[in-house]
Amino acid sequence: MSTETPSKIQKILAAGHLAVTSEVGPPRSADGLVIEHKAKLIADYVDGINVTDNQTSVCRVCSLACCIRIKQMGLEPVLQMVTRDRNRIALQSDILGAASFGINNILCLTGDHQHFGDHANAANVFDLDSVQLIATVKMMRDEGRLLGGHEFQVRPQMFIGAACNPFAGPNVALRVARLAKKAAAGVQFTQTQCIYNMNTFKEFMKIMVDRGLHEKVAVLAGITPMKNVGMARYMQKRVPGIDVPDEVVKRIGGVPKEKQAEEGIKLAIEQIQEIKEIPGIKGFHIMAIEWEEKVPEIVKAAGLFPRPN
């Protein structure tokens, strides 16, 4: 994890604690208070708050504006940035802008293809990919240089993160190799895709640890509680790159409708308990999609509360 930044998440990890992050999705309108409200719900229970960048290619308030708002609330934002919509000029410009407001965490992503979203007929950019974005942030931070060669004094102090999906594929070794590539580019932490298939995840972590890669990249395990059996089925069938085993669908579907949310939360907590025991794990990334109010309950029940300072 080398280079030190003022990032609170990095400090907590360096102190040997399990880190806890979560994320909030911006609204599809100019209502700035939505983010403030969501951030307040989880503020005391997490070390960092990701703001998604037009997730699933649906146009929303930009991640940067929301991160500035969260920073101004005295909290710790994680700027998610996809390369789908902006070229290297715009990406670097936004990184400088974020840093100018004291934002110290970035999650570098390629982004979903726009065909998923509400502007399927848009052109895409993909001037860089996630690995190249990681290397770009690192260069800006460590060398004070832009891709175009311009050198500057005040550098962005970014703790650099990336996503990883042990379940895409089907080749787990390929997925570790891809994270190794991100590590070679300069990534310091990763938040994984939502974990439901524990066997695959354990296999992934074993290769990580065997390669010593868990020391270079802090793995925060991705947890998303299921709200009901409909969501479980949707994730299983419709969301690319998510692996929901039949047992999970059966378990959520096996209780009466009004108990399914509770069962989903229970499952999430059990998952955290189990993952805590997996060698190499450095923390959790809890993505409660449009269900942020449940994050405190999960964090408390999983024994991750209170958060270190």
Partner: peptide, 20 residues
């Protein structure tokens, strides 16, 4: 690659098929 990535694959590939 549907995202013309130079360092793929992205997290969307499933069973060897593209997310698109």
């Amino acid at each position: 690659c549907s995202k013309r990535m130079l360092n793929g694959p992205c997290g969307g590939s499933e069973a060897g098929k593209c997310e698109v």
